[in-house]
Design a protein around this nucleic acid. Structure first.
Lengths: 148, 148
DNA sequence: TCTTACTTTATAATCGTTATAATTAGTCTA
DNA sequence: TAGACTAATTATAACGATTATAAAGTAAGA
């Protein structure tokens, strides 16, 4: 199936990326990566841990955190920190923003051309060397709107 | 001095605001509010706690957290959650964004007209009812640039 | 095979924040 | 002003996400 092939290709690309910087591919790392790519969501470390405990009954939470850090350092994964208790992790594909439901917490990807203008204005006003920015949009998702 | 007067005015306005919604003005609340307004920074709860322990040797950290919540609910204060461990608190004056130094962590206010366009596009693409957004810009501040 | 460095595991520690219960202090009414 | 009611503060414990530590396991190279 098309989706399957897509995922496999992404996983292989990610693995090649990791290998090229000298990171060993352990079964745990493979599984975490696979889950991140296939889940199409933005799971927390604990959600990943729970999702894989069937396959790896002895895996430690620390392993999940350690490897998420490894993936982050390799540029494969981004950590999303919103106000709530725990971080979420997002596979880096293309640049995009997130829109978050205030009611149910759902996170949806959302593409928007560029806010280069904002960055360059910030640069000239503050004297910073600007490198990047983050933005989240908040609102109520269609499902939650219906429920009112 | 001008600054002093400005601060006092802001504090009084904030206090009136709180009184009008039935919040008692205790010495601790007054001090926390005063510190938030006068410090011109974006302190953590612990920084506020430490800054006031001279005046209130018996004040509990819980009091700081409780009152920051009260102020947030009254719309006087915004909680800023970045990737790092603890929240920072910002007096709500006018709408503005923050630019953050990747090197030293300094947070500088930064005004930018409106990103209404982004919000409305997000609305039409995702079907959400959009309420608000947040954005932070990251870079290296002038001081840190000089030190390299 | 031996050695070395890396990984995982299990467990404990850390730290920001929140909950609890007891005490204290404001505010209102009589 | 006294008494009563409610809210706020304090001290302390609990919680939960994350990180540190040490021991055991595993892969790769000489």
């Amino acid at each position: 199936m098309g989706c399957m092939t897509m995922s496999s290709a992404k996983i292989n690309a990610a693995i090649d990326n990791l290998k090229s910087v000298g990171v060993r591919i352990t079964p745990q790392r493979h599984a975490i990566l696979e889950h991140l790519i296939q889940s199409m969501s933005h799971p927390t470390a604990d959600e990943i841990y729970k999702a894989l405990e069937g396959k790896f009954p002895n895996m430690s939470v620390a392993t999940v955190y350690n490897n998420l850090r490894v993936f982050k350092e390799a540029g494969l994964v981004k950590e999303l920190t919103y106000g709530d208790s725990s971080s979420r992790f997002d596979c880096v594909t293309t640049d995009h923003y997130h829109i978050i439901c205030d009611s149910c917490g759902k996170i949806v990807d959302f593409h928007y051309p560029g806010l280069d203008e904002v960055e360059s204005l910030a640069e000239s006003v503050t004297g910073f060397d600007v490198g990047r920015h983050r933005m989240e949009i908040y609102g109520v998702c269609p499902d939650c709107k219906r429920k009112h």
